[in-house]
Design a protein around this nucleic acid. Sequence first.
DNA 1: TCTGGGGTCCTAGGACCC
DNA 2: TCTGGGGTCCTAGGACCC
Length: 427
Amino acid sequence: MYGLVDGNNFYVSCHRAFRPDLEGVPVIVLSNRDGNVIARSNEAKALGIKMGQPFFETKELRQQHGIVVFSSNFPLYGDMSSRLMSLLTNFVPDVEVYSIDEAFLQLENFWGLYPTYQGLGQDIRTKIDQWLRIPVGVGIAPTKTLAKVANKLAKKRSELNGVCVLETPQQIEDALANFPVEDLWGVGHQSAARLKRENIRTAAQLRDTNDDWIRQIMTVNGLRLVHELRGMPCKLLEVTPPPKKSIGSEPGFGTVIPDLDTIADALTSHLTRVGMKLRRSDQLAGAVTISLRTSKYRKTPGNGLAAKQYSNSITLNLPHPTSATPELLGYALTGLKAIYKTGYQYQKVGILLTDLVPESYRQKGVFVEGPDERLIKLAGVVDKVNKRFGQDKLRLASQMYNPEWPYQQKYLSPHYTTRWEDILEAM
DNA sequence: TCTGGGGTCCTAGGACCC
DNA sequence: TCTGGGGTCCTAGGACCC
C-alpha cells in the first residue's frame, strides 16, 4: 500500500503556523514579484480567487473581504517542507519527497503499531499538526495513482476528517465511479478534452478502456495511469531523488524593459542564483540556454492593439562542463547578444543550465583545457561569503546593484525559521 | 502599472551511419 | 513492376506536474 500525505494550501499554512490569528480569514500568497496568486486559503478559494490569477485583478475582492496578502517567502516554505518530510520518517522508513508539500509513503512492511490504515492516517494528521502546526491530508491505496485519488477525496469529503483509505475492491470501485477524469494525476487539459469527446467522464470509465487505444492517445504515461487505476503499481517509490537534469530561472521583470544593458543586468543576477544552486547540487553544466520574450498580454499604447511579439532562445554547448559563474556568464551574455533585437518591450529573460554532470567529472576536450579550477574554487568562496554576510554582498561587476529593483515584494512576512532577527518572540 | 516559475518525460522527424 | 534495411542520436515541441 502507498500513502500520500500533502499539506493543505501549503504556503498559506506556513504563514498561519506563525499567525494563528489568520485561522478562518481569507489569505493569499503571491508569486515572486507579487505578480500572481499562487496559493489560496479555503476562504479565498470560496471567494472565487483563481490559481495563477493576476494580483491586480483581485483588488475589489480584497477591499470587500479584507483578504490578507503575503509575498512569497520560499526560504520559509522550504524549511517548513524539510521539517515536514523529516517528521514523516517517524512513521515509516521509506518516504519519497514528491514536491515541496507532498510525500509518498511505502506502507509495505507495516509492523502493526497501528491496527488499521485509518488509525495510521489519523495519527499522522494529529501529530504533524501538533509538531508543526501544518494541516495535512492523507490518502492510502494500493497504487500511487489511487493514493492520489484517496488524498483528493480526503479533502473533498469533510466527514472523512482528512484521511481516506481505499483498500477493498468495493471501496475503490465506489471512489472511481464518481471521480471526474480531469481530476486524475496525469490527466491535463488536453487529455481531459479528448477523453470527454469520447464520452469518458469518470475514472472508472477510463480504467475500463482499451490498452492500445489509450496508449495511442495518451502515450505510455496514459497506459501506466490506467494500469494503476486497476490496482497494478507502475510507479514505484523513489526514496533517493535522482540528480537534477536541468537548473534554470526565468522570472518576469515585473515591468517591461527594452534595452540590452538592463536585460543583461537581470540575466547576471538570475545566473548568480542558478550558479549557486548548481554548485550546491555538486554538478557542472555542459550547456547554457538563454531565452528572451515579450509579454503576450501587452497592448500597444494608443491604439490598444496587441503589441508586436518576439521570443527566441539559443543553446550554447560549452567546450567543457563548469560551475564557475564568471565562466558561465561569458556564454550567457554571448547568447543574449545573439538573440536580442532592438525595438521590443521585453518581459523576461531566462537561463537554463543543462547537460549536467557530477562535480567529479573532469574530462577535458582534445583541443581545449578543462574548466578553470581556480574560478570554480572562487565561486565556492563567494557562496560562503554571501551565505554568511547576505545575498549579493559579493557580486559580479556586470550585475548593477539596485536593491529596489527588480525584486518587488510588498507583503513579505518575517523569515521565522531561517533568519535570527526574525525569530518569534513569546511575551 | 502589474499577467507564475521550476521542473520532468515522451514522441516524431530529421540527419546520419554502414 | 520494381525503388534497401537496420540502426542511433539529436532536437523541438507538447503534455503534464506542483
